[in-house]
Simulated scan of single mutants.
Amino acid sequence: MEFVFNIIKGVMIGIANVIPGVSGGTMAVSFGIYDRLISSISGFTKHVKESLALLAPILLGCGLGIAGFTYAIEYLLENHTFVTCMTFVGLILGGLPALYRAMNEKKAAGSGKMGAGAIIAFLLAFAVSAGLPLLKTGGDTLAVLPVNGSTMAILFVLGIVASATMVIPGVSGSMMLMILGYYYGIINTITSFLDGLRAMDLAALKDGFLLLAPFGIGVLLGIVLIARLISFLFERYGVQTYGAILGLVLASPFAIFYNTGLFGELSSLSVWAVLLGIMLMIGGAVVTNFVGEK
């Protein structure tokens, strides 16, 4: 059953990585597997069997979540923005008790103190997570990516940057891609590749592979690099690291609402939409607590 629950967690992490403003790292924190995930990635060569037992179902779930939700994301955010965002706010905030317990465990183990350092880390991380969406200016103009060497090189670098932000809780990799102007281009490339796979269109598959392969390699490299850094921080400065993660997570709802334009739409929401959003937020929090304990 643990394998199945890890697939479900992976699906939710994958979906979170597709939505601008939502962090896959935050979802991993909420499900109570973040530190284990980081340890498995950073120590993969030393503990291959144990690492695969955790990473395989989560990566499978991530792939399913990204592939399945890529088609739905634009429709849901355009037509059901509030209830979609409230669901993810609930999924994120539902993991706060587990995050707080983990921080106390690090304190009890002597990995840092709940002092000024943890407070400063919290405030800085909160400011970064809340301020990052404000950097977005204008629209995403590269809806269709040309298949050439320069684009492939750019996508490799973007993969490293995006994956690093995907791993860090509270910082959205998809939002970073949107800020850099490549979000919709990559989304369109994924959907075109999947369409080509269904139709067995070799030309579409070749173009998709040439663009997605360097991006995927960059993603894997970025995840390994940032995981080793975070693993070191957990070991040496556990409480301060969790303080920073707590700041990133608490700022996520603001980032989600701002990045999707919800602040300008709140006054026009119907009572039923608000009630449904609140219900889905509560439901999301319950799901996080339930799945996170499995």
Rank of each mutant, 00 (worst) to 15 (best):
I226T: 02
A227Q: 11
R228Q: 14
S231Q: 15
F232V: 13
F232S: 15
F234H: 09
F234E: 00
F234K: 10
F234L: 15
F234P: 02
F234T: 06
R236G: 10
R236K: 15
Y237K: 14
G238W: 07
V239L: 13
Q240A: 15
T241K: 10
Y242A: 09
G243S: 09
I245C: 13
I245H: 11
I245M: 15
I245V: 15
I245N: 10
L246C: 14
L246D: 08
G247Q: 12
L248C: 13
L248R: 02
V249C: 01
L250I: 13
L250H: 08
A251R: 03
A251M: 04
S252T: 15
P253V: 11
P253E: 03
F254A: 03
A255N: 02
I256W: 01
I256M: 01
F257W: 03
F257G: 02
F257I: 02
F257V: 02
Y258V: 02
N259W: 05
N259I: 07
N259K: 02
G261Q: 07
G261I: 07
L262P: 04
F263M: 12
F263Q: 03
F263W: 11
G264T: 04
G264D: 06
E265V: 05
E265N: 12
E265T: 03
L266Q: 09
L266T: 07
S268Y: 08
L269F: 06
S270Y: 10
S270P: 06
V271Q: 05
W272P: 03
W272M: 09
W272S: 09
V274W: 06
L275N: 02
L275M: 05
L275W: 08
L276F: 09
G277Q: 09
G277W: 03
G277A: 02
I278T: 15
I278D: 14
